[in-house]
């Protein structure tokens, strides 16, 4: 058992690319689900259209990087309206089914052979991140403490990513302290009551959907740039489910909980995955019980199990206040 390598990868996971991406997705989801009570099961699609908006603009049409960012943002807003207009008047569980269906549609279109020229089929698109890395202020080399080091490329992605996480948290904090946030939380409780008090519930839900989508879309940019590629199947339904797990793990309707939740989620996932893989590889767990590839599925079984146990025994998550969480309303 190589505990040192397990330790190093685990520590790196706590601030790594996945943590940043999932934190941004979860912050957005927390606005929609935690504060406004919207069951958006299509968060993966918001990250997907942003990532593809950027990648298609730069890689397929050879247009500038910043235009790609603008198009990614615009695509996210358009998706939010497309999803929101028909569904935000409907019951919560209907919204869930529609958003999950829409996310599947988006993924299937991205990976379709028919549109391979534009979206690159199931292989996705590469070579659109050159301009981003050209802006890298870090000189080539390796940065870090002891054996926990990152390359200059990773450092640049992580720096930008964490700045975006911080800005998003600040934005959510300011909004939720304000009367705007109050209306949102009230809608989560009972939208008819809010309507009877003269608030345009539909408009607030739409604002929450767009805001959550835009914060998520930042995650899409970071994901695409960090991997220097986009692939349709990364933006599947399970991405959204993991983001939900993160929100609930941290505690819904808390500003920093998605960030902490994301870090814990990935630390556990990497730690368990690597420990199991090491244990199988070094023969501590005999291969008759588990092979290396099976160790991979055990981690995700634990995610499912963890999600169930959290909701049953601690629905307020780590930081939530049991008296004011969205989860046991109704």
């Amino acid at each position: 058992m190589d505990w040192n390598s397990i330790f190093v990868t685990t520590v790196k996971a706590s601030i790594g690319l996945e943590t940043v991406v999932y934190a941004l997705a979860a912050i957005g989801l927390n606005v929609q689900f935690g504060y406004a009570g919207l069951l958006n099961f299509g968060q993966a699609a918001f990250l997907g259209v942003a990532a593809y908006g950027l990648a298609v603009t730069v890689a397929t049409f050879q247009l500038p990087f910043w235009l790609g960012i603008v198009i990614g943002l615009a695509a996210t807003v358009v998706l939010a309206f497309l999803l929101g207009i028909p569904t935000l008047r409907l019951r919560a569980d209907y919204l869930a089914i529609v958003t999950i269906a829409a996310a599947e549609i988006v993924r299937l279109i991205f990976r379709a052979v028919k549109f391979k020229d534009v979206f690159g089929g199931s292989d996705g698109l590469q070579s659109f991140s050159g301009d981003f890395y050209a802006m890298n202020p870090y000189a080539p080399g390796s940065y870090g403490i002891g054996s926990i080091t990152f390359t200059e490329r990773t450092m640049w992605v992580l720096t930008v990513g964490w700045i975006l996480v911080a800005l998003s948290c600040a934005l959510v904090y300011l909004l939720m302290k304000s009367p705007w946030g109050r209306v949102l939380k009230a809608i989560r409780e009972d939208e008819d009551a809010v309507r009877s008090l003269g608030k345009n519930v539909f408009s607030y839900k739409m604002q929450a959907l767009v805001l959550g989508g835009i914060i998520g879309c930042l995650g899409g940019f970071v994901f695409a740039l960090g991997q220097a590629s986009v692939q349709p199947d990364l933006y599947g339904t399970e991405f959204t489910f993991y983001a939900y797990t993160i929100v609930i793990l941290g505690g819904a309707a808390r500003v920093f909980s998605p960030v902490v939740g994301a870090a814990i989620f990935w630390v556990l996932l990497v730690f368990i995955g690597n420990t199991l893989a090491e244990a199988v590889g070094s023969g501590v767990i005999p291969s008759s019980i588990m092979t290396v590839s099976q160790a991979g599925s055990v981690r995700f079984m634990l995610v499912g199990l963890g999600l169930m146990l959290l909701l049953i025994f601690r629905p307020q998550g780590i930081f939530g206040d049991k008296r004011e969480i969205a989860l046991d309303a109704r």
């Binding site: 995700f300 499912g304 909701l311």
Partner: peptide, 8 residues
Amino acid sequence: GLALFLRY
């Protein structure tokens, strides 16, 4: 959660 657990 149950679906994820069972699937994996």
